[in-house]
Design a protein around this nucleic acid. Structure first.
Length: 435
DNA sequence: TCTGGGGTCCTAGGACCC
DNA sequence: TCTGGGGTCCTAGGACCC
């Protein structure tokens, strides 16, 4: 039998109930006891729901137009999101948590892990510690939080789920101090899909294999999990048995990729509008890059049509533009992104989304550039094919190559991979290539 | 009519090398 | 008709998270 106390590890997961909604309620008490949703960018869909709204059956990400009638009927308050406010509230939550444990991992905007190892001596029980956190959050910043405690991060997450769903726990569930039989009973009563790390796909595979509850997963042989799903699920199984495999990460490592993207409020058709958006994305991604003191060696620009409008022709274009040197310079990033955009833009499509991704962050090695094109025999594709041939004969075989990806996408794609010897000189490539 | 924005890790398979 | 084997590096894609 694996002992949980042998390791002596205890983690807490503290998370805020319906975070965005709770933040809004702090500053507008009239929203208390009212159904409230917070909407995404462009007020497109629901990204946070109060308990009252959840009870009405509104799902995460539900589009506002499907929700509107229900919202009127039940007098749901619908708010546009205010990320600056949520970020500020999140910082306050974290600073309070640091008063409880020196080791805090900020996992997301509304969740933090705490290392409680050794703190049992300072408190009558971990539950008492959890209740103190709850009270202090309420009194100091007005936010309701929920605390889960367990010998691994996965169990702390699981405990948090139990505390949230069962009013009897009064917002704090301590699995670390619970006896084995009681823990097993709780696990037998909860669906495996609730476990941290079990998403939709793996859930259906597990169901098919007869693994339905958290207890079932805990008792599944590790070798089977490994062979079926890989090391990640094997670790999840171990974590459920109280063997801590995931360490607390107190210092957030620098980001390895940085994305800035947005959907448009209305469909856009022209290169000019896309250029403005992409230039803004490149500039704000650059800001994030500099904020973490990094440089990158490539920038990807991408544009997409509206994937929900199946009746419309679909197109997704993306291109990676390697930079001559690692850099975080806004003008360079913008210039490279716009250079790429011109190459992927195709007239005649209705675009819904655009963005950029910074790649090769803090990596001196050159990231290879590539160009995705809509598959077709149209004139532009033909011109590109000719250009490819020219490049191949000039720079040697396979400088540029083509293949068809195996996974289905809403648009058919063809890829040209260009070797760095060509693409790193993007800044002086004449327009003859794409025009 | 209208459908979010950001990330991470792991693995398979291809390119390339000896 | 025959057609090495092992290692590394890189990328795309699949899965997950909030």
């Amino acid at each position: 039998m694996e002992s949980t106390s042998a390791q002596g590890q205890v983690f807490a997961l503290v998370d805020v109930y319906n975070f965005y909604v709770s933040c809004e309620r702090v500053f507008n008490p009239a929203l208390e006891n009212r159904p409230v949703v917070v909407l995404s960018n462009n007020d497109g869909c629901a990204i946070a729901r109060s308990n009252e709204v959840k009870a009405l059956g509104v799902k995460m990400g539900m589009p506002w137009f499907q929700l509107e009638a229900l919202a009127r009927q039940h007098n749901i308050a619908a708010l546009s999101s205010n990320y600056a406010l949520y970020a500020e509230m999140s910082n306050r939550v974290v600073s309070i948590l640091r008063g409880y444990s020196p080791d805090v991992e900020v996992y997301s905007i509304d969740e933090s892990f705490l290392d409680l190892g050794g703190l049992e001596k300072l408190w009558p029980s971990f539950t008492a510690l959890g209740q103190s956190i709850r009270q202090r959050m309420r009194q100091w910043i007005g936010l309701p939080v929920c605390v889960g405690i367990g010998p691994s991060k996965t169990l702390a997450k699981f405990a948090n789920h139990i505390a949230k769903k069962n009013p009897g726990f009064n917002g704090v569930c301590d699995l670390a101090s619970m006896d084995e039989a009681q823990r097993t009973e709780l696990m037998a009563g909860i669906q495996v899909g609730e476990v941290w790390g079990v998403g939709g796909r793996i859930n259906s595979h597990l169901q098919a294999a007869g693994i339905r509850t958290v207890k079932d997963l805990r008792d599944t042989p590790p070798a089977w999990l490994r062979s079926r799903f890989g090391v990640v699920m094997e670790r999840t199984g171990a974590e459920l048995r109280g063997i801590s495999c995931l360490a607390l990460e107190e210092v957030a490592p620098p980001k390895k990729e940085i994305v800035s993207s947005r959907s448009f409020g209305q469909l856009v058709h022209d290169l000019q509008s896309l250029s403005e958006a992409v230039a803004n994305h490149a500039s704000s991604a650059g800001e994030k890059l500099r904020a973490q003191g990094s440089v990158c060696n490539a920038i990807q620009a991408f544009i997409q049509t509206n994937r929900f409008r199946e009746q419309d022709p679909q197109y997704g274009g993306s291109i990676v533009i390697p930079l001559p040197n690692t850099s975080a310079d806004t003008r360079l990033l913008v210039r490279a992104a716009l250079f790429g955009l011109k190459r992927i833009f195709r007239p005649g499509f209705a675009y819904k989304k655009s963005g950029v991704m910074l790649m090769g962050i803090n990596n001196a090695q050159t990231t290879q550039g590539s160009l995705l094109l809509e598959h077709g025999a149209d004139e532009r594709s033909q011109r590109l094919m000719k250009a490819m041939d020219a490049l191949n004969s000039r720079y040697g075989r396979n400088t540029v190559s083509v293949f068809t990806p195996s996974s289905p996408k809403p648009w058919a794609m063809r890829r040209e991979a260009m070797s760095p010897c060509y693409t790193t000189r993007w800044s002086d490539v004449p327009v003859a290539y794409a025009r």
